[in-house]
Design a protein around this nucleic acid. Sequence first.
DNA 1: AAGTGATGCAACCGCACCTTT
DNA 2: AAAAGGTGCGGTTGCATCACT
Length: 263
Amino acid sequence: MVRAPCCEKMGLKKGPWTPEEDQILMSYIQKHGHGNWRALPKLAGLLRCGKSCRLRWINYLRPDIKRGNFSSEEEEIIIKMHELLGNRWSAIAAKLPGRTDNEIKNVWHTHLKKRLLNSEIQKRVSKPRIKRSDSNSSTLTQLEPTSSACTTSLSDFSSFSEGTKNMDNMIKSEDIESVETIMPPIDESFWSEATVDYESSTMMTSNSWTISNELAPPQYQFNSVESFQQRSVDYNGSNYDDGMDFWYDIFIKSGESIELPEF
DNA sequence: AAGTGATGCAACCGCACCTTT
DNA sequence: AAAAGGTGCGGTTGCATCACT
């Protein structure tokens, strides 16, 4: 398929929008709707490409756009949804009326990512969960005390293996509050003794993990090694690095010895 | 006051997917 | 069924502003 020439080659304008352009675009869409974005600029008398018009409308001019800083509730939702969906900004934006995917993406990269990183560092510094059991070996031992065993299986979590896209079906807009139910906060009683054998120093490469752990809340359990591997591969399809801790947490709790696939 | 680096945000780009022909 | 065209998404960039020296 032949790609359409870019805006510049067509003699179209790029860069920041002027108030005049905004006004033209806004009044045209209010009067006629946007219809075909590609045809819109010509019809509206704008020297812009349709893509640029669409973006400007969606991210800035739409009447239902919410302006101003994100509330702490909104930030919480973004954090939780990102934990579940990864960098699927449009899906996250769908849960936050008036906010755009672009805005959420920016907020994530400029504020929330750093904040989460800091709090994670703080958490690990203040209460380390893992120590090297032998300074000459790569075996790591988790320190926290055990708690009661959990025997429930994770079959209700199985739709995960169909890929992260199916998350849209799992999470309905009215269920935002219930994200806690899907991914409950982890309290200290959750952790048990575990060992992790590394074949490399980084979690991003293929490792051999040995987990001894008799407990896990249902939402973190896996029925088999294969199911975990399948899920980790699926997750890798989106954003494995961002979610490494997420998988690490799950894995630590899965109570199985498995080989992570090569990524 | 000037220079410089960091930060935030709007906008662009390339790609994938969907729809139409 | 395949090609063409349209749309939406996520990653990235560039610029304005702020903070610091």
